[in-house]
Design a protein around this nucleic acid. Structure first.
Lengths: 100, 100
DNA sequence: TCAGGATTTCGATAACGGTCGAATTGTGTG
DNA sequence: CACACAATTCGACCGTTATCGAAATCCTGA
């Protein structure tokens, strides 16, 4: 499977991160990742089509918020929580805590 | 001067707040407010026209992030920091600290 | 190698959002 | 009242983005 690009978190800008999180669907994704750890693409519970979900995952990935690791024919998604915490301390964690 | 609408912070949604902060110009505005306390519209240091600035201030106001109080023919802007902190603890403060 | 499932990419569409200049509103002052 | 000034609103333009279905890509197992 083709190599996916994951930006170095030191190069991502704060507006990019906030923009990635300023979407209800993407917030749902991030919440579910925070709860479940690694989640496979088809297991997200979101009210959009598969192609749209793929688009949202790409936005989150390019903002440095999640990492994608191929596992067989699946792809495992997980938050880059430690890295984000080091880059923007408290931002992602407080956003996660501000949601039910 | 016409009464400006300020939403009850308990009614604003997290995506609205994040969306309001996911813009470089609006982040500049928020930073300058955090430093200077109350700032009059014409004194913001931003690289956009007055009408565009007014638009950004409206977005921030409707997201519950700042309050506008008329003072003569000027308008004073200030962060609603305590209220935002109570509603989304750590979100606004961590974003402020994540910027120079 | 072929079939099938998982995910992404492509192409199209519609809505949103940042931007500006011009016009408008509101406030204080002469 | 008339004027100047501060700020908003309006109308338009244009790039961005959320969305979908269809097609393409990638992997596994028979």
């Amino acid at each position: 499977m083709r190599a996916l690009h994951h930006p170095d978190v030191s190069t991502v800008a704060l507006p990019s991160v906030l923009n990635a999180l300023a979407d209800e669907v993407r917030l749902m994704v991030v919440r579910q990742l925070a709860e479940a750890g690694g989640v496979v693409c088809g297991q997200f519970d979101v009210p959009v089509s598969m192609s749209t979900l793929s688009h949202h995952l790409k936005v989150l990935r390019e903002a440095g918020i999640l990492r994608v690791t191929p596992q067989g024919s699946f792809r495992r998604h997980e938050l880059r929580l430690p890295e984000m915490e080091a880059r923007f301390p408290g931002v992602l964690t407080s956003i996660l805590q501000a949601t039910p």
